[in-house]
Computed example of a mutant assay.
Amino acid sequence: MQNPALAAAAAAAVTPAASSFAELPAAASHGPLRIEYRWVNETAADAPIAVFLHEGLGSIAMWRDWPQTLCERLGMRGLVYSRPGYGLSTPRARDVKWPVHFMTDQARDILPALLNALAIDTRERKRMWVVGHSDGGSIALLYAALHPDELVGAVVIAPHVFVEDISVESIAQTKQLYETTDLRAKLGRYHADVDSAFYGWNDIWLNPAFRQWSITAELASIRQPLLAIQGHDDNYGTMAQIDTIAARVPQAQLVKLDACGHSPHRDAPGQLNDAIAAFVSSQRQ
């Protein structure tokens, strides 16, 4: 099976001219940040917002046109952004390591700060969906747990709620590919500082202290509708991830996709969009 990092690296090209930037003030978990973002269907001012949270090696560009396609299907506006360290956002300083709780920091501090900077008010947040993939799926779960009144629901795709051996093994393999093949050059098309993006993600996932990371306790705080999706052929995680979500979030619905790896929006976009559209439609009735 092709390594998902290689597949993702071949997916798109950075187009900086299409991006806008938001300035976030310093907070307890971070210094001042410049965040790259783009709107999808921006002129649909009265439509609900879907916020897209990318994977551990992702950025705006690496989503390709999937947010646009999904938002058109759902009749929503989309907010797509590159997290700090990725895309054209503020890079990670070379001597900085992400802490074990980095995803909690993203959900608790950075996403709300971005929403504030973009003047997305309480009324809009109460109609907002968060859609996250991989690490972004974990951040979406944490956002739903920490800010239960500031979204209407969440969709998480191949999320992580604890660390599995398969994840660590695949991430170690990706490091070898990054350092011995053209993967670094390919990823460099999507990140202003590719080493910032890669080693920020790779170092924390391979840190022995991260093996104890888990957000299973936080899942019980999720009150809003939740859809969790996983491919049967995912080599970054098993069905135990979304089965754990279902065990702790009674209202969660699961979708398990055949012939699909870690990135359903690339491997099975039709099935993925159908599942999300059906779920969102059911919550509107």
Rank of each mutant, 00 (worst) to 15 (best):
A275C: 08
K186F: 09
S134Q: 01
H191K: 09
A220W: 01
E218K: 04
S89K: 11
M103L: 14
S138M: 07
A259P: 06
K175V: 14
P84H: 12
P4D: 03
V155Y: 05
H265Q: 13
Q253C: 10
N116M: 08
T244L: 02
T43E: 14
S82V: 09
R211E: 11
F162W: 00
H232N: 10
Q173D: 15
R284E: 12
N116V: 09
H30M: 13
R64V: 02
A61L: 10
D121T: 02
L227G: 00
M76N: 04
N3F: 13
A13F: 06
R38C: 12
I215L: 05
S214G: 05
W205N: 13
C260K: 00
D193G: 04
R94M: 06
E124F: 06
L219R: 02
W213Y: 04
S281I: 03
A22P: 01
P112S: 11
N202T: 09
A12C: 09
V280C: 11
M76Q: 07
P16T: 15
G136F: 06
F279L: 11
R184Y: 04
P25L: 13
R38K: 14
Y236D: 01
G231K: 02
G31D: 08
A197I: 07
T43R: 11
Q230A: 14
D233Y: 06
A158N: 03
L151I: 07
M128L: 15
G78N: 05
V156I: 10
M62D: 01
Q68I: 03
S20N: 13
A50G: 11
A192R: 13
A27N: 05
A13W: 07
A220F: 02
Q224A: 12
A5G: 11
P159T: 02
A252Q: 06
D258F: 03
N3L: 14
T181V: 11
F52R: 06
V194C: 08
Y236P: 03
H54W: 07
A17W: 04
E36K: 08
S170I: 02
T174K: 02
E218N: 06
R38H: 11
D109N: 10
D121F: 04
G31E: 08
W66S: 01
W63V: 02
R94H: 10
Q230K: 12
P16Q: 14
E218P: 00
L206C: 14
I276V: 15
Y199F: 14
A277M: 06
I276S: 05
D65R: 10
A277S: 13
A259T: 12
I49H: 01
I222A: 00
L183G: 00
D46M: 05
L177P: 06
S20F: 08
M62K: 06
A140Q: 02
Y86R: 06
G200Q: 07
A5Q: 01
K175F: 08
D165W: 02
P159D: 00
A7H: 04
I204E: 00
M128Y: 05
V40K: 04
Q271D: 03
Q68R: 05
L183P: 01
L177S: 07
N235C: 14
L227I: 09
L206S: 12
G58I: 11
E124N: 09
I245P: 00
G75R: 02
L219Q: 02
D65E: 15
